[in-house]
């Protein structure tokens, strides 16, 4: 997967987290999840495609190395539950994979790369309720960039990143982009800022 529009097309970019920062943030989040849940019992990690999925796998392997047990990791596509589905051209679906243990009575941790408007997470909660009834649901994100449009907050945050609407946050991950980094990109001249309601998660997900 190669980004079609490189950051250079669009103006200045700044690295706010490098590979080591991302690694440390994920390690801390993994420990916080275990602390909050008092162990790995009943945990199910669901990544939100695309970049939430490798993040969920990484958190899963960290939990395994700490606790010595493997936690079920899956992915949850929210495309069909988005509130802007009919405002934009039709989109293909990402892969949803629910671990065999299911989500009923589990502690589900939703994992995504960037928390912005909160609309993706609302979609994820709707998608999840069609899959079963978890005991509780919490949210882990690598970056919280603010500008919420819904009453949603993250339980575990890698980095709080104050941003302007006009800026874009781009998460690069080894699995898709060949390297780990979080960038803030200032919109280039002549380019309009993403309108209210556009999801940062879309903006950061470059291609499928």
């Amino acid at each position: 997967m190669v980004p079609t529009h490189t950051a250079a097309d669009r103006g200045a970019e700044r690295v706010v987290l490098d590979a080591e920062d991302i690694g440390r943030a994920l390690t801390r989040i993994s420990h916080e999840i275990l602390e909050r849940n008092k162990g790995a019992d009943g945990l199910v990690l669901l990544g939100i495609p695309t970049r939430g999925v490798p993040l969920a796998r990484r958190v899963g392997s960290r939990i395994q190395s700490v606790e010595g047990v493997s936690v079920p990791v899956g992915s949850l596509d929210v495309t069909m539950y988005r509130d802007d589905l009919r405002l934009r051209p039709a989109r293909g679906l990402e892969h949803t994979e629910i671990p065999d243990s299911g989500v009923d009575d589990k502690t589900v941790v939703l994992i995504d790369d960037v928390l912005y408007s909160g609309r993706t997470i609302r979609s994820a909660l709707d998608a999840l309720s069609d899959l079963g009834r978890p005991r509780n649901v919490c949210l882990a994100v690598l970056v919280d960039r603010g500008h919420r449009e819904l009453p949603i907050r993250a339980d575990f945050v890698g980095k709080n990143l104050p941003t302007a609407h006009a800026q874009k946050v781009q998460v690069l991950l080894e699995e898709y982009d060949g390297r780990d980094a979080v960038l803030i990109v200032d919109s280039g001249p002549g380019e309009s800022a993403p309108g209210s309601g556009s999801m940062e998660e879309d903006v950061t997900e470059v291609t499928r």
């Binding site: 980004p3 934009r88 051209p89 039709a90 989109r91 293909g92 309009s192 997900e205 470059v206």
Partner: peptide
Amino acid sequence: LYLLLSGSGEAPETSENNTTAGTEALA
């Protein structure tokens, strides 16, 4: 039915988001 009906029915966006026109050229 999903790919024909779920979207706005307009041509895919190209500039505002980073999504590529090719992969979303639907409906």
